[in-house]
Computed example of a mutant assay.
Amino acid sequence: MVGNGTVIWLLRVRGKRSPFSVYILNLAIADFAFLLSLDAWVTSRIFLHYLRELIGFIISVCIMTNTAGLSLLMAISTERCLSVTFPIWYKCRRPAHLSTIVCTLIWGLSLCLGILWLLYDSHYSMYYIYDTLLWVDSVLSLLTLLVLCVSSLTLLIRVHCCSRRRQVTKLYRVILLTVLAYLVLGLPVSLHFLLYILSYWFVNFRYFFNASCLLAALNSAVNPVIYFFVGRQGQRSGRRTLRELLQSALTDNLS
């Protein structure tokens, strides 16, 4: 939460805006809120008798922020792939406020899913809402996995083919490391819900669910580390502020 809060502060108050910094800002907000709601959910399970009425709201925030994080990661990877594959269109034809529009749509979709969970939490007889949420999460996770794999493979091929003419930029490394972190840490929790749909008995396997939640929390926490780690690469000797490191990681400056 401290790392994501630092990213939010630097980009929201002191950072220079760019198409990808808008995505990273919204991703940091989603990760911060997800970690906060996950902490609140753990606390509510410890003090269940005192916070029972808040559990439904906490879970709805978890669903909303997790959905937003997946969608934002997919949008970041897709736009970076388009910027490398179609550079002329990206520089000349790309709408000026595309990042803001996409982020607004993503948060709107995520908010709708959170409201659906609140409806189900208030009326347990509406079991079809629960099934709908599970299917939406599973389909979104599979779609995210497909898009990330295709876009990352495309980026690898393009960079490898153009390696003699174009060096690898820091932004490229940030995106690939973020995608890799999701595949290792964020995918298991989505896989759990998919297996729950396909096999009802899997829900009893609590250890996998608890472990996947821990990995999802690590996935939300590791992104700021990636930004500042990549930003430090290629820097001359001397101290650099966090703002300078973050701006360096989110631009197309060569390492």
Rank of each mutant, 00 (worst) to 15 (best):
A75C: 04
V139P: 07
Y50K: 08
L218N: 12
E244I: 12
F205N: 09
L246G: 09
L133M: 12
L36G: 11
T43D: 00
S141M: 04
L143C: 12
Q233R: 14
L98R: 15
F228L: 11
T178N: 05
Y207M: 11
V2W: 11
I24R: 01
P188G: 09
N210Q: 07
S18M: 04
Y127F: 10
S110H: 04
R17V: 11
I58N: 03
F47I: 02
T144I: 02
W41P: 00
L98Q: 08
R206L: 12
L38N: 10
V42L: 13
L111I: 13
D137F: 14
T144M: 04
R80P: 04
L118Q: 14
S255G: 13
V22T: 09
L25Q: 04
M64W: 09
L194H: 00
L72G: 03
V179C: 10
Y130A: 06
S212F: 05
Q233E: 12
I59V: 15
A33Q: 08
L156T: 13
S212Y: 06
G186F: 02
L73C: 07
L195R: 11
L98V: 11
S125A: 12
C103D: 01
D31G: 10
S255Q: 10
S212N: 04
I63H: 07
R12E: 00
L254Q: 10
C103I: 02
A221D: 08
I55D: 11
F47V: 01
L73R: 04
L35S: 14
V22M: 03
Y128F: 15
L145R: 05
L51M: 10
T154Y: 06
L48C: 00
H192R: 05
C162P: 00
H123S: 01
S21V: 01
T241G: 08
C62G: 13
C149F: 14
I197R: 05
P188D: 05
R158K: 13
L176F: 08
L109H: 10
S122F: 09
A181E: 03
L105C: 11
A33K: 11
N26L: 01
P87I: 10
D137C: 14
F47P: 02
Y50I: 07
R14C: 06
F205H: 05
C62I: 15
S44R: 05
L198S: 10
E79S: 06
I175A: 07
L153F: 13
T132P: 00
M1V: 11
L140E: 08
C213N: 14
Y120R: 01
L187R: 08
V61E: 09
S60Q: 12
H123R: 01
F205Q: 01
T251L: 08
N253D: 15
T251H: 06
L134T: 00
A211M: 04
T178W: 02
V225R: 09
L218K: 09
C213S: 12
C213H: 14
V150E: 07
A40Q: 09
I101S: 07
L218P: 06
V2A: 12
S77Y: 01
A40H: 08
P188Y: 03
T169Y: 04
C92K: 15
I197P: 00
Y200K: 06
A211V: 10
H192D: 11
I106K: 04
S18W: 03
S152I: 03
L148D: 02
Q167Y: 03
S99L: 03
C92H: 09
H97G: 03
T144H: 04
R93K: 15
L82E: 10
